[in-house]
Lab assay of single mutants.
Amino acid sequence: MISNAKIARINELAAKAKAGVITEEEKAEQQKLRQEYLK
């Protein structure tokens, strides 16, 4: 099960992506976390 901290990070990265200020490194982290969440 995914931790609350990881869910919070997913939401934080989603907000950054929506604002258009996300880095390529953060995009990769976001994809990794989303895949983990979906498992």
Rank of each mutant, 00 (worst) to 15 (best):
Lys32Met: 11
Ile2Lys: 06
Asn11Lys: 14
Ala28Pro: 00
Ile22Ser: 03
Ala15Leu: 11
Asn11Pro: 01
Ile2Ser: 08
Gly20Leu: 03
Ile7Asp: 04
Val21Trp: 06
Glu24Lys: 10
Lys39Leu: 07
Ile22Asp: 02
Lys39Asn: 15
Arg34Ala: 14
Ala19Val: 07
Gln31Cys: 13
Glu25Thr: 07
Ile10Tyr: 11
Ala17Leu: 07
Tyr37Gln: 14
Val21Gln: 13
Arg9Val: 02
Tyr37Leu: 15
Ile7Cys: 14
Asn4Phe: 04
Gln35Cys: 15
Arg9Cys: 02
Ala15Pro: 00
Asn11Cys: 13
Leu33Asp: 02
Lys16Pro: 01
Ala8His: 08
Glu36Trp: 04
Ala28Met: 14
Lys6Ala: 13
Ala28Gly: 06
Asn4Met: 14
Ala17Lys: 05
Lys18Leu: 13
Glu26Asn: 00
Leu13Val: 01
Ile2Glu: 11
Lys39Asp: 15
Glu12Gln: 08
Leu33Met: 04
Ala14Val: 09
Glu36Cys: 08
Glu29Ser: 01
Lys6His: 09
Lys6Phe: 06
Gln30Val: 09
Ala19Arg: 10
Ala17Tyr: 04
Ala19Thr: 08
Lys18Pro: 01
Ile7Asn: 05
Ala5Ile: 12
Lys6Pro: 06
Ile7Arg: 11
Gln30Ala: 15
Ala14Leu: 10
Glu25His: 06
Leu33Thr: 03
Leu33Gln: 02
Gln35Asp: 15
Asn11Leu: 14
Ile2Asn: 08
Glu29Arg: 00
Ala17Phe: 04
Glu26Thr: 00
Arg9Phe: 02
Ala19Ser: 08
Lys16Glu: 01
Ile2Arg: 06
Glu36His: 05
Gln31Ser: 11
Met1Thr: 12
Glu26Trp: 00
Ser3Val: 07
Leu38Cys: 13
Ile10Ala: 06
Gln35Val: 07
Lys6Thr: 14
Tyr37Ile: 15
Gly20Glu: 05
Ile10Cys: 14
Lys27Ala: 11
Ser3Asp: 12
Ile10Asn: 02
Val21Cys: 09
Glu12Tyr: 03
Gln35Ala: 09
Glu26Phe: 00
Arg34Glu: 15
Leu33Arg: 03
Arg9Met: 03
Thr23Asp: 04
Thr23Ala: 01
Ile10Pro: 01
Ala8Val: 07
Ala17Cys: 14
Glu12Thr: 04
Ala15Asp: 09
Met1His: 13
Glu24Trp: 06
Glu12Ala: 05
Ala5Phe: 00
Lys39Met: 10
Gln30Ser: 10
Gly20Met: 04
Val21Arg: 07
Glu26Ile: 00
Leu33Tyr: 04
Arg9His: 02
Ala14Gln: 12
Lys16Ser: 03
Ala5Asp: 13
Ile7Pro: 04
Lys32Thr: 07
Arg9Ile: 03
Leu33Trp: 01
Glu24Tyr: 05
Ala17Ser: 10
Ala14Glu: 14
Lys18Glu: 12
Arg9Gln: 03
Arg34Gly: 10
Asn4Leu: 13
Gln30His: 15
Lys6Asp: 08
Arg34Tyr: 15
Lys18Cys: 14
Glu36Pro: 01
Ile2His: 09
Lys16Trp: 00
Glu36Asp: 13
Ile7Tyr: 03
Ile7Glu: 06
Lys27Asn: 06
Arg34Lys: 14
Arg9Leu: 04
Leu13Ser: 01
Arg34Met: 15
Glu24Ser: 07
